[in-house]
Design a protein around this nucleic acid. Structure first.
Length: 225
DNA sequence: GCCAACGTTGGC
DNA sequence: GCCAACGTTGGC
């Protein structure tokens, strides 16, 4: 079983978040700017994980970029996300898109490297379809039984994305440095003005604009601020 | 280990 | 649907 990212406690994620409600959804714009009709397409991502050992309910939370790199295929399922916004972002991810691997809750927080989305999140719908061979009367959309990973940490019915290690950044980009740029850009304009890492501090899966992504990548060739 | 920020829960 | 209490995140 692949390691968990941000998995927390034995609480099962309830389906109260709205996805399970199939009809009557208002196409409302969330705080994150995304909506159920899928308006703004995000193309780049930042995903947080903890590189240092920490036991939570007997589970070691450690999963840094080196751990991803060491796996077969350098690929892992990014499970354990149980925040609805984060989960919704994961559902928007498209194969081939790039994400920063961010080290959080550790001595040295910051962006360590790059990974790529190699499998998109999906829900297996066949089990709900009476005409399908996989139909299971006991499986309900808000609690699917098959091909799902209804373990702690993510909504039953969602198979989370798979990510593959791409490369380390040429140098580690510490949060402190990113924050300096963010503050500068707040004051004088610049691509990191509204970066979610600072404006939505607790979001563990977040989108980046291409401008944010490119700017951050350009930092690896520069002296630290 | 502290604690601020903020998301979630549940009573009303 | 409001909002206070509670729990979690995550930098420091």
């Amino acid at each position: 079983m692949p390691p968990r990212k941000k998995a927390r406690t034995s609480e099962t994620t309830a389906s109260s978040g709205g996805e399970a409600a199939p009809k009557r959804r208002k196409v409302s714009v969330g705080k994150d700017g995304s909506n159920s009709a899928g308006s703004p397409e995000h193309s780049h991502w930042l995903m947080k994980s903890e590189p240092e050992s920490r036991s939570e309910n007997g589970i070691d939370m450690k999963f840094g970029i080196e751990d991803l790199k060491a796996l077969p295929n350098q690929t892992s399922c990014w499970d354990g996300v149980r925040n609805y916004q984060a989960r919704n972002f994961m559902r928007q991810m498209k194969e081939g898109q790039l994400a920063f691997f961010y080290h959080s809750n550790c001595k040295d927080p910051g962006i360590a490297g790059l990974m790529r989305i190699v499998k998109e999140a999906y829900v297996d719908h066949t089990q709900f379809d009476k005409k399908d061979v996989h139909y299971d009367a006991g499986s309900k959309p808000d609690n699917p039984k098959w091909s799902m990973v209804p373990t702690r940490g993510h909504t039953p019915g969602l198979v989370p994305v798979d990510v593959q290690y791409q490369r380390m950044l040429k140098r580690f980009l510490p949060l402190s440095e990113l924050k300096k740029h963010h503050l500068q850009h707040r004051a004088g304009g610049g691509p990191l003005r509204d970066m979610a890492l600072f404006t939505r501090a607790r979001l563990s899966v977040q989108p980046l604009t291409p401008e944010e992504f490119d700017f951050i990548l350009s930092l690896e060739d520069q002296e630290p601020l």
